[in-house]
Computed example of a mutant assay.
Amino acid sequence: MSGKLSCNAEKCVNNINGLCSANNIHITGDESHSSRETGCETFSPKGLVNAMSNFTNMNLVGQFKQLFSADSIEMSPEIKCEAENCIYNVNELCTASNVQVYGPDARTTRETECETFKEH
């Protein structure tokens, strides 16, 4: 994916000011027919233990670039997608130019969804 990923799952350890700091994202929902049937498997609740265990998946280059860019979104993670019925899923990779993960009150993966999902 060469697009941008924004996220409103504020309780996720990867969420930094509405942007996803993960380098690799995993969207689930292989039989999905709507965004509500998808989920962000990369979601992990905020906390020191989860921050340490997710350190190897941090998009450090994107975060550094973002510090110096107020006008654009610089974090562009790779998004693995299992949503077979989504038009943006090409060989299990997301090809959407912009992706929005939803889950403002999410505490688990099941409470998140990919709002960009669009059925074939």
Rank of each mutant, 00 (worst) to 15 (best):
residue 2 S to L: 13
residue 2 S to W: 11
residue 3 G to Y: 10
residue 3 G to T: 10
residue 3 G to F: 11
residue 3 G to I: 10
residue 6 S to T: 13
residue 6 S to Q: 11
residue 7 C to H: 06
residue 8 N to K: 04
residue 8 N to G: 10
residue 9 A to H: 05
residue 10 E to R: 06
residue 10 E to W: 14
residue 10 E to M: 07
residue 10 E to S: 09
residue 13 V to L: 03
residue 14 N to F: 05
residue 14 N to R: 02
residue 16 I to E: 00
residue 16 I to P: 00
residue 17 N to D: 08
residue 18 G to Y: 07
residue 18 G to W: 07
residue 19 L to M: 13
residue 19 L to P: 00
residue 20 C to F: 01
residue 21 S to R: 00
residue 21 S to K: 01
residue 21 S to C: 01
residue 22 A to K: 03
residue 22 A to W: 05
residue 23 N to D: 08
residue 23 N to P: 00
residue 23 N to S: 12
residue 25 I to N: 01
residue 25 I to K: 01
residue 25 I to D: 00
residue 26 H to A: 12
residue 27 I to N: 08
residue 29 G to M: 10
residue 29 G to F: 12
residue 30 D to H: 11
residue 32 S to Q: 06
residue 32 S to M: 09
residue 33 H to A: 11
residue 34 S to T: 11
residue 35 S to L: 09
residue 36 R to A: 14
residue 36 R to C: 03
residue 36 R to G: 08
residue 38 T to V: 07
residue 38 T to Y: 07
residue 39 G to T: 03
residue 40 C to D: 05
residue 40 C to E: 04
residue 40 C to V: 06
residue 41 E to A: 14
residue 41 E to G: 08
residue 42 T to L: 03
residue 42 T to N: 09
residue 42 T to G: 10
residue 44 S to W: 00
residue 44 S to P: 00
residue 45 P to I: 06
residue 45 P to E: 14
residue 45 P to D: 05
residue 45 P to Q: 07
residue 47 G to Y: 00
residue 47 G to I: 03
residue 49 V to S: 03
residue 51 A to R: 02
residue 51 A to G: 02
residue 52 M to T: 09
residue 54 N to Y: 00
residue 55 F to C: 06
residue 56 T to V: 15
residue 57 N to G: 03
residue 57 N to A: 06
residue 57 N to Y: 08
residue 60 L to S: 07
residue 60 L to V: 12
residue 61 V to R: 15
residue 63 Q to Y: 05
residue 63 Q to K: 04
residue 64 F to R: 11
residue 64 F to V: 11
residue 67 L to E: 10
residue 67 L to Y: 06
residue 68 F to W: 15
residue 69 S to L: 06
residue 70 A to F: 13
residue 71 D to F: 11
residue 71 D to G: 06
residue 72 S to L: 02
residue 72 S to F: 04
residue 73 I to A: 13
residue 73 I to N: 14
residue 73 I to M: 09
residue 74 E to S: 12
residue 75 M to H: 00
residue 75 M to T: 03
residue 75 M to G: 00
residue 75 M to E: 08
residue 77 P to M: 04
residue 78 E to H: 08
residue 79 I to C: 14
residue 80 K to I: 14
residue 80 K to W: 14
residue 81 C to Y: 13
residue 81 C to V: 07
residue 81 C to E: 13
residue 82 E to Q: 14
residue 82 E to F: 12
residue 82 E to W: 12
residue 84 E to W: 08
residue 85 N to K: 13
residue 85 N to H: 15
residue 85 N to W: 10
residue 86 C to S: 11
residue 86 C to N: 09
residue 86 C to W: 01
residue 86 C to G: 12
residue 87 I to Q: 14
residue 87 I to N: 09
residue 88 Y to P: 09
residue 93 L to H: 14
residue 94 C to W: 07
residue 95 T to V: 09
residue 95 T to Q: 14
residue 97 S to I: 09
residue 98 N to T: 09
residue 99 V to Q: 06
residue 99 V to E: 04
residue 101 V to L: 15
residue 101 V to Y: 10
residue 101 V to N: 07
residue 102 Y to T: 04
residue 104 P to A: 14
residue 104 P to Y: 02
residue 106 A to E: 06
residue 106 A to C: 08
residue 107 R to Y: 08
residue 107 R to V: 13
residue 108 T to K: 04
residue 109 T to Y: 01
residue 109 T to R: 13
residue 110 R to W: 03
residue 111 E to K: 02
residue 113 E to Y: 03
residue 113 E to W: 02
residue 114 C to K: 02
residue 114 C to M: 07
residue 116 T to K: 10
residue 117 F to Q: 03
residue 117 F to E: 02
residue 118 K to M: 05
residue 118 K to V: 08
residue 119 E to M: 10
residue 119 E to L: 06
